[in-house]
């Protein structure tokens, strides 16, 4: 049942031009950035060989590109998730799901899985460029895969937050703006404090980007994984509660 909802969600994305536009523009922007990173690498390559333990292609090209993809996802998320529930509420199609023999959990997980498939598709496509480096060089697989894992976790969390915001309103545009605001805030939340004092540390811990960077450096830390998992699960639980509350008339 979850799969049925997920599959319709995924397919419907591609029935409007939005999904293609998102995928296309992501590729164009990432391609430009990729060229920039490769160019820089070629410029400093000669000097790098003189270093005792020179950073390779993965550190100088693949990791920054994954970082860029993360930022890009931050901006894509509101557009991709705004319609999830808000649009169904607006078009009154939510009634169909509510009157069918489905639990709220199935509805929420179905929608989440649907958007997750799309996000993973974006991630998969953005990996094509760093993987093309294999033609002329070699990649530190451990570090690269660690970064990919980080990007997948990041996208799963962004999608969960977007889904939650979409359950709160009837207007997709409001959901989009709300999601963008919250994600951006979570991204820059440690901008002012930057880890000074205990309060600063807590704020810095909340930052979504502070948990992503270690992955890009090839550092796999379960506490970072836990951050994303906990945040995603919380958002999903709140989404389920929110739909239940709507039925009960809160």
């Amino acid at each position: 049942m979850i799969r049925t909802i997920a599959w319709r969600e995924f397919r419907s994305l591609f029935l409007s031009p939005l999904a293609f536009v998102i995928l296309g523009i992501t590729q164009i922007i990432l391609a430009r950035l990729f060229l920039g990173h490769v160019n820089l690498f070629l410029m400093i390559q000669a000097r790098l060989v003189t270093l005792p333990n020179p950073p390779g292609l993965t550190t100088l090209v693949a990791a920054p590109l994954l970082g860029n993809a993360g930022v890009l996802l931050l901006f894509i998320t509101p557009l991709a998730t705004m319609r999830l529930v808000a649009d169904e509420r607006h078009n009154k199609t939510l009634t169909l799901l509510y009157s069918a023999p489905l639990s709220m959990t199935e509805i929420v997980l179905g929608k989440y899985l649907g958007i997750l498939m799309f996000f993973f598709l974006i991630v998969a496509l953005s990996l094509a460029m760093p993987l093309s480096l294999l033609i002329g060089g070699h990649i530190d697989w451990g570090m690269f895969l660690c970064g990919v894992l980080g990007l997948l976790l990041l996208s799963a969390t962004l999608a969960a937050i977007g889904l939650l915001i979409s359950t709160l309103t009837k207007y997709p545009a409001v959901a989009a703006m709300g999601t963008l605001g919250i994600l951006f805030l979570l991204w820059i939340i440690d901008y002012a404090g930057h880890g000074r004092g205990d309060g600063g540390k807590i704020v810095a811990y909340l930052s979504i980007v502070n948990h992503y960077e270690p992955f890009l450096r090839g550092l796999f830390n379960t506490s970072n994984v836990a951050y994303y998992v906990v945040l995603s699960v919380t958002c999903l639980l709140f989404s389920i509660r929110r739909l239940d509350a709507e039925r009960l008339g809160a």
Binding site: R8, N91, T95
Partner: peptide, 14 residues
Amino acid sequence: LGYLPEHPPLYREL
């Protein structure tokens, strides 16, 4: 039960 609400709940793109 089968329910036809006031506004038919159609997915417009299907």
